[in-house]
């Protein structure tokens, strides 16, 4: 699987031109706030609109301004880990994971249990998001994404809201999971150490332009 992105989006202060290729690997985007790094991810996922360009996953074109292709967010198969994890507040941990399967018309308790085990959520099934710690929330968010695996994974500042001690352990766990999964993954962060821990392929954004760092 390969993700190819070449998109333009006009922002208030500058024009964003996100251009990158990602095979079955992890790519890091390291830049400060307001650089358009989260915006890039949101454009790939289809949450934000794109002015022009091209996005392809494997042999699926999900956006092409010339051919007027713009696949709905729901059909892009792009997993997105939000900075605040964006769990469904009205649902328990179990329901948060189960509802993704139900949305795809699958009823499979075992699949839900598998993810609960994989992300060490045993005993938390009946808790609500407000009753979870930051690290637990992140694991629920990941379980929710992987219960119906996407083709691409976008991680938007996944560790910025977590305690330092917790961070290290979670980074280790996530790295193991990502290596097993082995599909195109983009990790966005302002923290150099964090990105370096996951990958050697790093981009930065300067005035809207992507530059390869390493």
């Amino acid at each position: 699987m390969k993700l190819v992105v070449d998109i333009h989006r006009k922002l208030e202060l500058f024009s964003l031109h996100a251009k990158l290729e990602c095979k079955n690997e992890i790519i890091g985007i390291m830049a400060g706030s307001g650089s358009g790094k989260s915006m890039s991810l949101k454009c790939i996922a289809g949450i934000e609109h794109v002015d022009s360009g091209f996005i392809q996953i494997g042999n699926r074109i999900i956006y092409d301004s010339n051919k007027k292709i713009n696949v709905k967010v729901q059909d892009r198969k792009v997993g997105y880990l939000f900075q605040n994890f964006a769990l469904f507040e009205n649902m328990t941990v179990y329901q948060n994971i189960e509802c993704v399967l139900l949305a795809h018309k699958i009823k499979d308790e075992n699949r839900v249990q598998e993810e609960i085990k994989r992300f060490k959520l045993e005993g938390l099934e009946n808790r609500y998001p407000r009753q979870l710690s930051g690290g637990q929330k992140q694991r629920v968010a990941l379980a929710r994404i992987f219960v119906y695996p996407p083709d691409v994974l976008l991680l938007d500042e996944p560790f910025s809201s977590l305690d330092r001690d917790l961070k290290k352990e979670l980074m280790k766990d996530l790295k193991v999971q990502l290596e097993k999964w082995n599909k195109p993954t983009i990790l966005v962060s302002h923290d150099k150490e964090e990105i370096k821990y996951f990958t050697k392929k790093i981009y930065t954004i300067k005035e809207g332009q992507y530059e390869k760092v390493y």
């Binding site: 892009r76 939000f82 769990l87 469904f88």
Partner: peptide
């Protein structure tokens, strides 16, 4: 929370399902 709704979309939930299962209860 807008991210909650966006997350539901990236997870493949249809607009009407999002309205019933996420927007109304919240």
């Amino acid at each position: 929370d807008e991210d909650m709704v966006s997350a539901a979309r990236t997870l493949g939930m249809k607009e009407w399902t999002i309205f019933r299962r996420i927007i109304i209860p919240n």
